[in-house]
Amino acid sequence: MTTGRTAATGLTLSGAPEPAPSPYRWAWYLPGLVAVGWGVYGLLPSVQPLQWGLFVVLGIAAHDLLLAPIAVGVGWLLSRIVPAVLRAPLQVGLIGTGVAFVASLAYVLGRGTSEDVPSAVPFNYAGRVGMALALLWVAMAGWAGFRWAAGANADQPE
């Protein structure tokens, strides 16, 4: 039998101690573990596990080592070199741009087009994404201009 010290609790994102686990957690664990087990049971005879695992690891790495650091770095720069009045419009614009880039990349690269099925992936995706982003940035520029003007007016002596 083992007794003695137990590990300290962790901290939440806000820096507070994590609360004790819920007594109802097993009601989620059980169906969850069954579903994971069922998925693994079905997956193993269907794929080469190493290929699947490599794809999964590359996906995690692409996020954790590339996308997330870029987002964090851009946010860090934004909070330091961009005037306060421009920050929120830039944040919204950058979030929209980042999502558009990630969601449209496979379409824009156009590797799925084929001559015998011209109705598949038929659009000029780069043009459509560009148009959407242009609209977004025009709106953000308008918002930033409004904020700048409002800030300047607030500075006027009465």
Partner: peptide
């Protein structure tokens, strides 16, 4: 589901 269970309190 497992993640929700483990984070239920938070």
């Amino acid at each position: 589901l497992v993640h929700v269970g483990s984070k239920l309190a938070i």
